[in-house]
Simulated scan of single mutants.
Amino acid sequence: MASPAPQRRFQNPALFICDIQEKFRSAIFEFDKVVLTTSKMLRACAALQIPVYVTTQNRARLGDTVAELQAQLQEGGGRLVRANTDKTRFSMWIPAVTSQLAETETKKKSEIVIVGIEAHICVTQTALDALAAGYSVYVLADGVSSCNRDEVGVALARLRAAGAVVTTSESWIYECLGDAAAAEFKTIVGLVKETGRDTKAALEGLLSPRI
């Protein structure tokens, strides 16, 4: 009997990128590490064909998504971007996003993974709204930050208590894939190896010693 085809652990994942904008570059603790992790996640999403949802907060005043991520969003990953919208509400849980999210769903709601800023404001409110709507929510500890470093640990503890899973980018990517027999496995292994230094820098900058 033939072996069953490999199944991903996550059947309907989605990446939320929250407000990683130019004006925050000098204000957010370890901002460059958030960008590194988000870039890796975009590459993983391209390999795994995972839809991406992007927001900016008051773009006219705070600027667009940072240039290095814009390049990825406009190139190969552009076909995966389901929403790229500006907002005034702190939460990403707005009709421009949720309407597109609903279109990707059949019997199972999306497993939402969140990166961005600020951890204790927009990321927290997005996660809480998604949890309240019945979604599985993952927050990447190596992909979120705030202006004040100490806010981040408090926010992550609150989100854990609310039911979100706090994890890391590499852990989430492999959990999403779920099986070394998957066709995308070699691509993901290559990505993880290629971004190894960036991953280490993000972990050391954003997690140690608060998590």
Rank of each mutant, 00 (worst) to 15 (best):
A2T: 15
P4A: 12
R8E: 01
R8A: 02
R8L: 02
F10C: 07
F10H: 14
N12L: 02
A14Q: 13
L15D: 01
F16L: 11
I17W: 02
C18T: 14
D19R: 00
Q21H: 02
K23P: 05
K23H: 07
I28A: 04
I28M: 11
F31H: 10
V34W: 08
V34E: 11
T37Y: 04
L42P: 08
Q49H: 12
V52T: 05
Y53V: 01
V54T: 01
T56N: 06
Q57D: 08
N58Y: 09
A60E: 12
L69A: 03
Q72M: 09
E75N: 14
G76A: 10
G77I: 08
R79W: 00
R79T: 08
R82N: 01
N84P: 05
D86F: 00
K87Q: 08
T88I: 15
M92C: 01
W93K: 03
I94P: 02
P95H: 02
A96C: 04
S99L: 03
S99R: 10
E103P: 13
K107N: 14
K109A: 10
I114R: 09
A119N: 08
H120T: 10
H120Y: 06
H120A: 09
I121D: 09
C122M: 09
V123N: 13
V123H: 10
A133E: 11
D142S: 08
C147G: 13
N148W: 12
N148L: 15
R149P: 14
D150Y: 07
V152S: 11
V152Y: 05
G153H: 13
G153I: 13
V154C: 05
V154S: 11
A155T: 13
L156Y: 07
A157E: 15
R158N: 14
V166I: 15
Y174C: 03
E175T: 09
A181R: 15
T195Y: 07
G196N: 15
R197G: 09
A202F: 07
G205Y: 11
L206W: 12
L207W: 04
S208Y: 11
P209I: 10
P209M: 09
